[in-house]
């Protein structure tokens, strides 16, 4: 009898853990999938299908170290644009990225989840709460 109760509690716990995990990865998958669409329509023309950029004109999105180090700046860069000198993958770029006009915070979060988990990057979810928090600190 006791055994049975313990067993069913254990089973319940296992189910709970699995479902929590899968709801986490479910959220990630949603962000990532929608992010790929946002990327195709708003970023791919410049940064390329594989995040390769365009020679010396547009930087690639493959510099994981840069992305990780500057992750809290990324929402501002996408929302308000970016210009001036930056070093990406040991190469110097001095271009200008226009502001992504008309993108909602959630779309920025989705696009960032997509790029930071594609092209060889693996940073996990970039959710809308993170984007909201970073955006109020834009310079």
């Amino acid at each position: 009898m006791k055994m049975k109760v313990i067993c069913s509690i254990c089973a319940l716990l296992v189910i709970l853990i699995i479902s929590c995990q899968s709801s986490d990865s479910l959220e990630f998958n949603r962000y990532y999938a929608e992010g790929s669409v946002v990327y195709q329509t708003h970023c791919q023309n410049c940064h390329g299908q594989h995040g390769e950029g365009l020679n010396g004109l547009i930087p690639p999105l493959t510099d994981s170290v840069f992305l990780r180090k500057n992750s809290d700046q990324l929402p501002c860069a996408v929302m308000f644009g970016l210009k001036g000198k930056i070093t990406i993958g040991k190469r110097l770029f001095e271009g200008q990225m226009p502001p992504a006009s008309g993108l909602a915070n959630i779309e920025i979060a989705q696009a960032l989840t997509y790029i930071t988990n594609s092209f060889g990057n693996k940073m996990g979810i970039f959710n809308v709460e993170m984007v909201n928090g970073d955006l109020v600190k834009c310079r």
Partner: peptide, 15 residues
């Protein structure tokens, strides 16, 4: 040169 829309795609293909 400052074209934000289709030029990067065009020049990528022109390459």
């Amino acid at each position: 040169t400052s074209c934000p829309s289709i030029c990067p795609i065009m020049q990528r293909n022109m390459l």
